[in-house]
Amino acid sequence: MKIDKNCRYMKTHEWVRVVGDLATAGITDYAQSQLSDVVYVELPEVGDAFDKGEVFAVVESAKTAADVYMPISGKITEVNEALSSPQLVNDDPFGEGWFVQFTPSDLSELDALLTPQEYQEHVAQEEGGH
């Protein structure tokens, strides 16, 4: 399982990476492996604003459809149009398979998210529970 050291994580398997004033979010490598082949990603529109924890996207795989939650509050500035080839989410979840870019409204919300280390432990725990 890949982990990106520059991201913070949600227990629901979303990642967020903040560079300067801009944040990028997507789903983790573990999430894509659990979903299996992603067949469709429903993205929000540029200009939409979401609070942390709100559903901002839906990811559909051959197996299921899952809601994707906003890691920290913000306003969408760009969506990844390349996800019309949804396989990118499976191939490169932390890179080409990103979902949205947004302007965070409160960076202190990051503190409540899991660190890469904590996320790794969380996944190990979930796996153990299975």
């Binding site: 067949v39 559903v55 559909e60 795989s61 299921t64 459809a65 899952a66 809601d67």
Partner: peptide, 11 residues
Amino acid sequence: AAREQHIRRER
């Protein structure tokens, strides 16, 4: 089928 209620029924 993913759109069916038996998978994401709450939404």
